[in-house]
Write a protein that binds this DNA or RNA. Structure first.
Lengths: 197, 197
DNA sequence: TATATATTATACCGATTGGTATACAAACTG
DNA sequence: CAGTTTGTATACCAATCGGTATAATATATA
């Protein structure tokens, strides 16, 4: 188990830095201090390694997002805040995986890494759309624009996290204290004002 | 000149579909109906081809954005609308380059394509920041948050264009008529409400 | 102790990678 | 016409790519 975890860590680090296609299997095994057959023993192929990486990462992300989505049905603003909070904390603490995921989200549609991340992203979209549908009566007349709102919200989350990461690039440890709840409540407020008109 | 243009077109198409690293020089010259020495005669290297591609594309983008930025100083809302309009029309008409640019924006920082696009993105950021600084008195107290607003605005533009492209994927010809001025004015309004509070 | 199973290393594979040396043809220039 | 620049093709390069056949370990179970 130790070796498998080690490979995943090294691979994530390299994919995050250089991108999937620019990283060779050789480079991964060298940095991990093992040899190729070991990697292929665990993951079967480079693509298999990518899939395992995404499986693990989205499991971590979902374990934060889903509870936040179902914390309180009564107040939309509070739900969106909790989701934003969960999302941002994940982006800060698991920032290598997060920025790798972000890069895949907007990447070319016909290459391997996007094909691998597609189902995970799709279920993330679905969850957020469902979130808006569940609270549609509180948001006034949405007219089937749930999808648009969901995409807008996700874009809003991404942009916020991305900006934050660019600004605090390099600092690894003391990030969490810079993302205050008040700031996030303000941004959710800002996002909602556009929606409820 | 015909051959050079042809190579650039084919390369853009492939980079857009599969990503820079996943496309081989061999594939480009085959699809372009030429041979490798011809490509290397014009661009020197694969990276040189990428640089030329970006140079051309950002020239096209800037020729739309800059005039829009300086159309009218008096009304911020109108300026932001004109920029949004220019940006969206570019995204629709030059959509292959646009989505390639978008993929590079969020891509890994240490690989070649990001290094190549960095200066272009940086000057785009600078222009938008300057836009907000120029109109700061109309937007109330910005407290040096011009950068944050600029990033937010760019994220807003990207998300809008991205959502639009996902929705209308595949249709090549009749896109322009779907991006109405009214819709864009509404979105700018929505964005601004968050800023001026 | 004997056997089975999970890990790991050595050494290798054919295919493809970005890039080039050489030569030849076209076209412009003196 | 002679010479030079521009443009293109054939054939090739070492290096690297993802992946594997083989065999030796370590560990656990019987």
């Amino acid at each position: 188990m130790d070796n498998r975890k080690n490979i995943l860590d090294v691979a994530l680090c390299l994919f995050h830095q250089k991108g999937y296609d620019a990283v060779s299997v050789q480079e991964i095994v060298e940095k991990a201090g093992i040899t190729k057959p070991t990697l292929y023993y665990y993951f079967g192929s480079k693509y298999g390694l990518l899939e395992a990486l995404l499986e693990d990462g989205f499991k971590r992300l979902n374990s934060r997002i889903y509870p936040a989505m179902e914390c309180c049905d009564s107040d939309v603003r509070e739900v969106l805040f909790q989701v934003t909070r969960a999302f941002m904390h994940f982006a800060v603490e698991d920032n290598k995986f997060f920025s790798f995921m972000l890069s895949l989200m907007y990447s070319a549609k016909e290459n391997e890494p996007y094909q691998a991340v597609r189902p995970h992203l799709h279920s993330l979209y679905r969850s957020i759309i469902e979130l808006f549908e569940r609270n549609s009566q509180q948001l006034g007349n949405m007219n089937g624009r749930q999808e648009q709102f969901a995409m807008g919200f996700l874009g809003f989350l991404n942009q916020y996290a991305f900006t934050f990461m660019v600004k605090h690039d390099g600092q690894e440890d003391t990030l969490a204290e810079h993302v205050t709840d008040d700031e996030m409540r303000g941004l959710v407020q800002q996002f909602m004002y556009g929606i409820v008109n």
